[in-house]
Design a protein around this nucleic acid. Structure first.
Length: 391
DNA sequence: ATGTGC
């Protein structure tokens, strides 16, 4: 059994990763910077920890009396939503399904305003400028993925999530689109001091809760669009945000790329070329801050992927398939490369660390069948000779 | 991450 590593001289930072885990020094330094912030009582790093633009991804941080909105970041409420679909694996036609999912591209034709009014808390920042983005996946690491069960480890827990061998699931990873960014912009300007709970913190949390609801509804509408296109129905089984702040009395628990461990089962995806683990969080030591990993975590930054991935026509074609014979729909060449499976850590290793730390038990394992990222046709402006200098 | 930026 593993025990969390203490980081630095501080007894407030615990890293729940084995000594052989792929963790960059830069990410550990970012954890230390988090711990130095106002009111910070404890910081927990997960095995998917990696450096982020403004702070570490794959961590939880608990502060007394202060809300640090920038830790949660722009994509407030980003997370995973899992559905079990009515269609069995034997009836799913790969090419047909891949073709049909193209309908996820572009705007949703439904009544976004009505759905938002129905689902969001009433008080808070005006959401109407962002109604048009409801039901859209967005960019970066977001996706909508049809999955097939490859292994059932705990059949009781799996069947409670609607899964047995031969079942098809749908996993949606998306967030609050522009709305979460607008919430952050409204409450966060610069610096690392944080907001006193009574001096701006509560106002942030009110808007944050709306962004949380937007993100959840966004995932749901994406799933509804996907199911309609696949001519099937399904049951919403899990919705697990991993970018959020949670008030616990006078303390604020911030999670950035960390899934809550106190709300039931959690889907932990690898990459578009790797399996997703469905896990049951276990009763954990308080140092884990009620959190587990949210995925495999990045191994390589986006910028370095261009040189890491060979990009001849054949290689690009290979990136549009996964090792299980499934399909990847991503017409954006840049995104295809940045999100290559090689960019991510080994999900088996991340899960093994979580198991060794006694944080989770595996319930089921699913493989990607079709991963939809984007079908947008990019307008590419080819630079002409001297284009840059001419102005 | 981003109604994705000058």
């Amino acid at each position: 059994m593993g025990t969390p590593r203490l980081v630095g001289a501080s007894s407030r930072i615990h890293l729940f990763a084995s000594s052989t885990a792929w963790i960059e020094d830069a990410a550990v330094r970012q954890l230390e910077q988090l711990a130095d912030r106002r009111g910070m009582r404890a910081v927990a790093g997960m095995p998917d920890l990696h450096p982020g633009h403004h702070g570490p991804v794959g961590c939880a941080a608990e502060a007394e009396g202060s809300v640090h909105a920038d830790i949660v970041g722009t994509d407030i409420g980003c997370g995973m939503q899992f559905w079990s679909l009515d269609i069995p694996e034997r009836k799913l036609r790969l090419d047909k399904a891949a073709e049909r999912l193209w309908t996820l591209e572009g705007h949703w034709s439904g009544n976004a305003e009505a759905r938002l009014e129905e689902d969001l808390p009433t008080e808070g920042l005006d959401v109407s400028p962002f109604a048009g983005a409801l039901g859209t996946i967005g960019g970066g690491n977001h996706f909508c993925e049809v999955q097939a069960v490859v292994e059932i480890v705990d059949s009781d827990a799996a069947s409670a999530a609607g899964l047995e061998m031969g079942s098809i699931g749908l996993l949606v990873h998306s967030g609050s689109r522009g709305f979460g960014a607008a919430v952050l912009a409204r409450h966060y300007h610069a610096g690392t001091e944080g907001l006193p709970l009574e001096g701006g913190g509560l106002a942030y949390l009110r808007d944050h809760d709306r962004a949380l609801a937007y993100a959840r509804l966004n995932r749901q509408v994406i799933a509804e669009r996907a199911m309609a296109s696949l001519r099937t129905e399904g049951v919403l089984r899990l919705d697990v945000p991993h970018n959020l702040a949670e008030r616990k009395g006078s303390r604020i628990l911030h999670r950035k790329g960390a899934a809550p461990s106190d709300r039931g089962l959690v889907p932990v995806p690898g990459s578009r070329g790797a399996v997703t683990y469905l896990v049951a969080p276990l009763e954990a030591p308080s140092e884990a801050l009620c959190s587990i990993a949210h995925g495999a975590g990045r191994k390589h930054d986006r910028a370095s992927m261009e040189r890491r991935v060979r990009t001849s026509a054949g290689d690009l074609e290979r990136l549009a398939r996964n090792p299980f014979g499934g399909r990847v729909i991503c017409t954006d060449r840049q995104l295809l490369i940045e999100e290559a499976p090689d960019a991510y850590k080994d999900i088996h290793k991340v899960i093994a660390d979580l198991e060794a730390m006694n944080l989770v038990q595996v319930v089921a394992i699913l493989r990607p069948v079709v991963t939809f990222k984007t079908a947008r046709q990019i307008r590419r402006i080819e630079p002409r000779n001297g284009w840059k200098d001419k102005r």
